[in-house]
Amino acid sequence: MAKSPTSFRYDYAQSPPVDQVGIAERAARFTTRSIKTSTKREGLDMVLNMIDLTTLEGADTPRKVQQLCYKAGHLHDSIPGLPTTAAVCVYPPFVKVARKALGSNSPIKIASVATGFPSGHLTLEGKLEETQRAVADGADEVDMVISRGRFLSGDYEYVFDEIAAVKEACGKARLKVILETGELATLDNVRRASDIAMHAGADFIKTSTGKISSAATIPVTLVMLLAIRDYHFKSGNMVGMKPAGGISKSKLALHYLVMVKETLGSEWLSNEWFRFGASSLANDVLMQIAKIESGGDYQSPCYFSQD
C-alpha cells in the first residue's frame, strides 16, 4: 500500500487534547481481555512475526549481529512452522553485516536506527548522510529519532522539516519515527508529535529508543494509535505503529494486539503495520508456545537460545 507524500503542512494547533486519566482507564480495559486457546496461539504467532529483533548496544560486534540475524529466522527450530521475526534492528555500521547474514531475498527486513540515535543530537547534514548510508548499505527501514529539545521548546516547524528531510533521504526505505515519549512529559505532546510525524511522512510512528526508563506503555501507545486512526480517516493513508522497549512478556504483547484490534481494526494486525521493538520478548513468546505444544508443561529459559 503506497503512501502519497504529504503535500500540506500540519497545523500544530489542530492536535486534540488528551485526557491522561481517561486514556489510563481505557488502557486498563485492554488488559482485562482474556486471550485463550486458539486466539492465544494465533496471537503468539502474530507477536513473533511482528518483532523487530533488536540489538542496540555500544558493545555490539559483527558476530553478535550475525547471531541475531540467524535467530530472527530460526526462532526455535524444534517447533516446526514458527514464523520469523519481522526484522532485525541494528546500529548503522552493522547494516552491511546483517545484509550479508540474511542475504538479499530474506523476508526478514533490516531496520537501522539513524539520525544520531538515541539522543538525536547531530547536525541535519549528519543525519541525512547517516540515513542515506544505511539505506545504501541495505537497510529496508530506518528508525529515526525526533529532536525532542526542539519539540519541547515549541519549534514544531523544525521537527516537521527534519522528519520530511529524513523521509526524502530514505528513498524506498520505510521510515519509523521515534518520538521518545518518555521525554515528552504529557500525552498531549505525544499526540502532537505523532501528528507532526505522520504529516511529515512517517511510515511508522514508534514510542521509544529503549534507552530511557519510561519506554513503551499501553497508554502512550493508545494515544499514538488514536492519532493513526484519525490520520487515516482524514487522509486515507495507513501508518504503522511500533511500541519499543519494556515489552518482554507474551501476555503484555497480546494485550497490545487487543488494543490494536479494538482501536484500529484487524487490518493493522500484520507486521506491515504493527511491530514490537524488543529483544527478550521473543523467548517469552516461544516459552508460551512450547507450553501449549507440550500440552501445558511450564518451560525453563535454559531450553531457549538467547541469541
Binding site: I35, S266, N271
Partner: peptide, 13 residues
C-alpha cells in the same frame, strides 16, 4: 507469514 484474520476472542468463561 502475513496474518490478516479478524482475531476473534475465543470463549473465556
Amino acid at each position: 507469514m502475513k496474518k490478516n484474520t479478524q482475531w476473534e476472542y475465543a470463549p473465556a468463561p
